[in-house]
Amino acid sequence: MRFYLYEAYSLWRRDMLSFSRQKDRLIGYSFAPLFLLAFIGLGFKNQIYFPEMKNIDYLSFLTPGMVAMTLLTASNSTSFLMLWDREMGFLKEIMVTPSSRIGIILGRTASGVTVAIFQSFIILFGGIVMGSRFHRPEGMLISLIFMALIASAFIGLGLSLASFKKETYGFSLVLNFILYPFLFLSGALYPVDRLPSLVAPLSYYNPLTYGIDGLRYSLLGVSSFSPALDLGVMAASCLAMLGLGTYLFEKGEWD
């Protein structure tokens, strides 16, 4: 246990050093969700209310959804970076060390999560500047837990899928094709019971539904499920995805 945490820390440290020397990457990924929040959230701010959500204004309602979108983007960028390392040949240099594969997965995930949370806070503060009203200040701290869990689970998924690929070419497209349904079937844009009845049941099998519900609980004080259920589902998906990633890294070839 101690060993793989140390290895994870070493990887995280290297990523942070690399990032600190290319800061544009850090901020770049938050632009799309920030623009969506501004143009959709502000536009519908006073037009859309959901009675079951205590009539919270749409801008505030959408902010946790856009945070989730940012977290999924981080999943994409983290697995992209992993593939980039692979394409460049650096991953091979890591895989040839006796470092535990779980340490390698956790380290990569930790640096992805760090960046994701940083970007999420850009969205949160952007939301506050535009007029999102959050329930209570300490809610932001609770939301950190959900952010970390959502980001880890989807980074785990991204790394698992990336382990089958050898180059970055086309990977983002494929991953987005998988990530967007998670986002649209999660209640990021509106409560899931308003989804077309054909797909609505799917949203209950989507861990992100619970993740976003947990974010709304912590930030806005409203939720469709109990926060304990949100936490449980997210934690379980997180473990499952990181476990899958570790397994695939253990048995893969790294040529």
Partner: peptide, 15 residues
């Protein structure tokens, strides 16, 4: 993006 020493340090940790 790392210096020579940082590269060695990273790998040394993994070992």
């Amino acid at each position: 993006k790392l210096t020579g020493r940082e590269n060695l340090d990273f790998h040394a940790r993994l070992y």
